[in-house]
Design a protein around this nucleic acid. Sequence first.
DNA 1: ACCAACGGTTCAAATAATGAACCGACCATA
DNA 2: TATGGTCGGTTCATTATTTGAACCGTTGGT
Lengths: 259, 259
Amino acid sequence: MGTVTKALSLLDYFNRSRAQIGLSDMTRLSGMNKATVHRLLTELAELGFVEQVGSGREYRLGPAFLRLAALREAAVPMRELSLQVLHDLSDATSETAHMSLLQGDQLSTLAYAYSPVHGTKVTMEDAEVLTLHTTSSGLAVLAYSPADFVDRVLAAPLEAKTPDTITDPDQLRARLRAVRDTGIAEYVGGFEEDVHSHAVPIFDSAQAVIGAVAVAAPVSRMDDTLIALVRAEVKTHAMNLTRLLGGFPPDDFNRDIPA
Amino acid sequence: MGTVTKALSLLDYFNRSRAQIGLSDMTRLSGMNKATVHRLLTELAELGFVEQVGSGREYRLGPAFLRLAALREAAVPMRELSLQVLHDLSDATSETAHMSLLQGDQLSTLAYAYSPVHGTKVTMEDAEVLTLHTTSSGLAVLAYSPADFVDRVLAAPLEAKTPDTITDPDQLRARLRAVRDTGIAEYVGGFEEDVHSHAVPIFDSAQAVIGAVAVAAPVSRMDDTLIALVRAEVKTHAMNLTRLLGGFPPDDFNRDIPA
DNA sequence: ACCAACGGTTCAAATAATGAACCGACCATA
DNA sequence: TATGGTCGGTTCATTATTTGAACCGTTGGT
């Protein structure tokens, strides 16, 4: 392992519940020699990557990250990142993948990717607007939204886009509980007939939901084999996108899919 | 220079106008050996601190910074606190307010706030980098920095950003004495022409200067009335921010403005 | 067809990283 | 107030990593 990796791997020991770490703790956590850890932390401190909290006390993450994160964000727009992940995802599933962001009480499609494998596929429009109660992405977002927001959305008139759209608030709430249990949302024909989709929420740096990644296929093609594949792939790719965007799943987010 | 410093100093060559850098360019910019730069970039890439844009193409800042910046802000909500104060300050003065942190021998902009009152205003960029000898914030920081740091900064070549930039060390030292007398720094057109700004230093819990809060306005608008208002407001808001951040001004810091 | 510049690789020589032992300071407990 | 444990930090001979000139194969412009 190179010295740079050793130094930067120290940063991984910081997290929300452990914002400050002392030299001895860091030595234990990393398994490295105390002198080594001290030298690395000192060097990181000079660069502003960590800082010492008081006088000769614990270390915490430094201010340099704010500057570099701003530059990163300026250099790589969210849409480009989403497209990369969606391309992978549609490749892995051979179906249409898309990503949408919560805007007001609707979802607006940020990006999508098609697979060339099948002649028939679910197609999207640029910046297509989706409603929350008619799509798997909407259920994924609602399932991790604050209660008052969910209340407001479900109190409004819920229009049926198809005969299969769920418009009963109680039924929708039951679906949201199911989503929270599995970490993944499913909807058959709620927005358009003949479309079966699975969606996983995307979170921001404050662990709040900001949108969802979904895979959509024609109902006829979505058999048990494809369902298993799609669920696994959407889950991992969505987690990956959350990470790329600098976000964190909430602590109660179902990290491991129970089959 | 330690290996870690070498690796992380590569990151400083990225900025808004140069978001992607190739291996050869980076070699030239850093003055290091190409093999060394390649190894360091590869190591940084494995950790997500940089990433390669296409297949065997240029490098850019990686996604790790978003995660770490979020953790930093969760641990120390410096940016959020600054934004609150800056918002108040720009409201009170009807001009642009900004806060920057000392990083190495430069200032990096942490946050800023605009006033909606005037159509023309001084604009900022996210994470904009300011030099110490060209800005009122820089003078404010230098005036309360240790002598050896000031010596080092003033001994380096001082580039003129505008015709009004002060590049003579003796003249700058005279300005620093004036800053210490009043507790507030002033600069007209040192960084950009037509900008007149006032700045007050921010201190940490060890009474050491860590940055500055400033208000910047177009030269034409900065008349005696506005100057008096800005000086009073910057002073109180900066003191307030120092306090919010858990810091203390040094004992010789001029607490009451003598008009 | 050519040349220059690109990203990337090699390996002996040079250099920086390492770690066991050691400080003084601090803080409970005795 | 002694004492034992832990803290952050330091030292320096040993060791392992980093370094850099030269070298690939590839690409793109002339």
